[in-house]
Amino acid sequence: MIHIRHAGVARVPIYVAFAYIDDYQTVPDWMFGISEFTPVGEFTQGLGATFDTVMHIGPKQLRSRVEISEWVENEVITVSSLDGITNTSTWRFKAQDDDHTELSVDFAYQLPGGLAGKALGRLVEPIVETAITSTENKLRRNLERI
């Protein structure tokens, strides 16, 4: 499993940061490449909530289904793939003070094994790192405009 981690501080209270990230309707506004994040079933947040996603990477459009596999209010949200490339993204929230929140993300993914997987990893890793950094920066800017 490959992990890419990034952190930054947003000038908003922890409850504002958590509520924004927890709102599935905002995901396409801040998550790199995501154009659709649609609930499947009756739950739209919390443990077990499931979503169909559409991600654009260059000219490619990738569809997948994800679920919330860890959720603790104002602490952590983990989204895990149910199909496609095995991946998880874990967002952690830590209050720096009443008006500043540290947001950290750990994006983990697993590529196929063997030489093909290693070659693909060398191509994909820089793109994923750029996407994670871009996502965190856009998320922070969006939060600070609320």
Rank of each mutant, 00 (worst) to 15 (best):
residue 12 V to N: 08
residue 13 P to T: 05
residue 14 I to D: 02
residue 14 I to N: 03
residue 16 V to K: 11
residue 17 A to T: 07
residue 17 A to K: 06
residue 17 A to C: 04
residue 19 A to P: 10
residue 21 I to F: 10
residue 22 D to S: 13
residue 22 D to F: 13
residue 22 D to G: 06
residue 23 D to R: 06
residue 23 D to V: 06
residue 23 D to A: 08
residue 24 Y to A: 12
residue 25 Q to M: 04
residue 26 T to F: 05
residue 29 D to A: 05
residue 29 D to L: 07
residue 30 W to C: 14
residue 30 W to T: 15
residue 30 W to D: 14
residue 31 M to E: 03
residue 33 G to Q: 10
residue 34 I to T: 12
residue 34 I to E: 05
residue 36 E to V: 02
residue 41 G to F: 09
residue 42 E to L: 15
residue 45 Q to L: 12
residue 47 L to M: 15
residue 47 L to A: 13
residue 48 G to V: 04
residue 48 G to C: 05
residue 48 G to E: 06
residue 48 G to K: 05
residue 49 A to I: 00
residue 50 T to L: 12
residue 50 T to D: 09
residue 52 D to M: 13
residue 52 D to T: 14
residue 56 H to N: 09
residue 56 H to P: 03
residue 58 G to A: 15
residue 59 P to V: 10
residue 59 P to R: 13
residue 60 K to V: 07
residue 60 K to N: 13
residue 61 Q to C: 11
residue 63 R to K: 14
residue 63 R to H: 15
residue 64 S to G: 11
residue 65 R to N: 06
residue 65 R to W: 07
residue 65 R to D: 02
residue 65 R to L: 10
residue 66 V to E: 13
residue 67 E to C: 08
residue 68 I to L: 07
residue 69 S to R: 02
residue 69 S to I: 01
residue 70 E to C: 07
residue 72 V to F: 04
residue 74 N to C: 06
residue 74 N to F: 02
residue 77 I to F: 01
residue 78 T to S: 13
residue 80 S to W: 12
residue 81 S to E: 00
residue 82 L to Q: 15
residue 84 G to L: 01
residue 84 G to W: 10
residue 85 I to P: 05
residue 86 T to Y: 13
residue 88 T to D: 11
residue 88 T to W: 11
residue 88 T to C: 12
residue 91 W to C: 14
residue 92 R to P: 00
residue 93 F to Y: 13
residue 94 K to S: 08
residue 96 Q to E: 11
residue 97 D to C: 04
residue 98 D to H: 12
residue 99 D to I: 02
residue 99 D to C: 04
residue 99 D to F: 10
residue 102 E to Y: 06
residue 102 E to S: 02
residue 103 L to M: 05
residue 104 S to H: 09
residue 105 V to M: 13
residue 106 D to L: 13
residue 108 A to D: 07
residue 109 Y to M: 03
residue 112 P to E: 08
residue 114 G to V: 08
residue 115 L to R: 06
residue 116 A to N: 14
residue 119 A to L: 12
residue 120 L to F: 11
residue 123 L to K: 12
residue 124 V to T: 07
residue 127 I to P: 00
residue 128 V to M: 14
residue 128 V to T: 04
residue 130 T to I: 14
residue 130 T to K: 15
residue 130 T to H: 14
residue 131 A to R: 01
residue 131 A to M: 10
residue 132 I to A: 09
residue 132 I to T: 06
residue 132 I to G: 02
residue 134 S to Y: 05
residue 134 S to K: 10
residue 135 T to S: 08
residue 136 E to K: 08
residue 136 E to V: 15
residue 137 N to V: 12
residue 139 L to V: 02
residue 140 R to E: 03
residue 141 R to S: 07
residue 141 R to P: 00
